[in-house]
Design a protein around this nucleic acid. Structure first.
Length: 111
DNA sequence: TCAATGACCTGCC
DNA sequence: GGGCAGGCCATTG
């Protein structure tokens, strides 16, 4: 359940933790940054296991900027509330200015 | 060990 | 341009 070893999940958590406030990223971007662009599902799956951790999963959305995992949060609009609290604009479970708020680890953490 | 799942992405009709 | 189906890889039971 909680392997101390740095598994793929931990790797995803580390990237998500580096996401600045008010910024969002996509599963594919993280997966690609980890070198597993085809494992985008693993990123989402990792988020599912991120419960109880200091991982801002609410900053991670799908390619369309849609809060797909919103249903996994406690409340119904908790994920949206958190994003709006950081200054992001979310309408109908979708992030406005997603392109502007998009945080690409490949460009920011490419080093 | 085998099989099924999953907060996705890409391609094709 | 929009909608549908398949596939990918790692973790869990």
């Amino acid at each position: 359940m909680k392997p101390e070893t740095l598994s793929f999940f931990e790797r995803v958590y580390d990237v998500v933790r580096m996401i600045p406030e008010g910024r969002v990223t996509s599963y594919g971007a993280i997966a690609k940054y980890l070198g597993a662009a085809r494992s985008s599902r693993l990123v989402g799956y990792a988020m599912n296991a991120s419960h109880g951790k200091d991982v801002p999963a609410h900053r991670v959305v799908n390619r369309n900027g849609l809060l797909t995992g919103k249903h996994h949060f406690e409340g119904t609009n908790l994920m949206q509330q958190l994003l709006e609290n950081e200054g992001a604009v979310v309408v109908d479970n979708q992030i406005k200015n997603f392109k502007a708020l998009f945080w690409d680890p490949l460009k920011e953490l490419k080093n």
